[in-house]
Lab assay of single mutants.
Amino acid sequence: GLPPGWRKIHDAAGTYYWHVPSGSTQWQRPTW
C-alpha cells in the first residue's frame, strides 16, 4: 500500500499521487 496520508488519483492525464496533509502531488509512486 501507500504511505500514510497518500491517495492515488485517476484523471484524464493518467494516475498520480496526492499527499493529503501537505497538498502536494507527484507522478512517482511515493515510497516509505
Rank of each mutant, 00 (worst) to 15 (best):
G1F: 11
G1W: 12
G1T: 12
G1R: 12
G1M: 12
G1H: 12
G1K: 13
L2D: 05
L2M: 05
L2W: 01
L2V: 04
L2R: 05
L2Q: 07
L2F: 04
P3N: 01
P3K: 01
P3H: 01
P3I: 02
P3R: 02
P3F: 06
P3L: 04
P4H: 08
P4I: 05
P4F: 07
P4M: 06
P4L: 06
G5E: 04
G5H: 03
G5S: 03
G5A: 01
G5K: 01
G5T: 01
W6A: 00
W6V: 00
W6S: 00
W6L: 00
W6E: 00
W6R: 00
R7T: 13
R7Y: 13
R7A: 09
R7M: 14
K8T: 12
K8Y: 11
K8L: 14
K8N: 04
K8V: 15
I9F: 04
I9H: 05
I9K: 05
I9W: 06
I9R: 05
I9P: 03
H10Y: 10
H10A: 11
H10N: 10
H10Q: 13
D11R: 09
D11T: 15
D11G: 15
D11H: 10
A12I: 11
A12W: 09
A12P: 12
A12D: 12
A12E: 14
A13D: 11
A13E: 11
A13P: 02
A13Y: 13
A13Q: 14
A13H: 14
A13R: 14
G14N: 05
G14P: 03
G14M: 06
G14A: 04
G14R: 06
T15G: 08
T15Y: 08
T15H: 08
T15P: 06
T15L: 08
T15D: 13
T15V: 13
T15Q: 07
Y16F: 08
Y16L: 09
Y16G: 06
Y16E: 03
Y16S: 02
Y16T: 00
Y16K: 05
Y16H: 06
Y17T: 00
Y17G: 00
Y17F: 07
W18Y: 15
W18D: 03
W18S: 07
W18N: 05
W18T: 09
H19D: 02
H19W: 03
H19P: 03
H19Y: 04
H19R: 01
H19F: 03
H19K: 05
V20N: 03
V20H: 06
V20R: 05
V20E: 14
V20D: 08
V20F: 10
V20T: 08
P21N: 05
P21D: 09
P21I: 09
P21W: 07
S22Y: 04
S22V: 03
S22M: 02
S22R: 02
S22I: 02
S22K: 02
G23E: 04
G23L: 03
G23M: 06
G23I: 00
G23F: 02
G23D: 07
S24W: 15
S24R: 15
S24T: 15
S24D: 12
S24H: 15
S24N: 14
S24L: 15
T25F: 14
T25V: 15
T25W: 13
T25I: 15
T25S: 09
T25R: 13
Q26S: 12
Q26G: 02
Q26V: 05
Q26D: 04
Q26P: 01
Q26A: 07
Q26E: 06
W27M: 13
W27P: 10
W27V: 15
W27S: 13
Q28D: 14
Q28L: 10
Q28S: 09
Q28F: 10
Q28A: 12
Q28I: 09
R29K: 12
R29W: 08
R29D: 08
R29Q: 11
R29L: 11
R29S: 08
R29V: 13
R29I: 12
R29M: 12
P30L: 01
P30Q: 01
P30R: 00
P30F: 00
P30T: 00
P30K: 00
T31M: 12
T31A: 11
T31F: 08
T31D: 11
T31R: 07
T31Q: 11
W32R: 07
W32V: 09
W32Q: 10
W32K: 08
W32L: 09
W32E: 10
W32T: 10
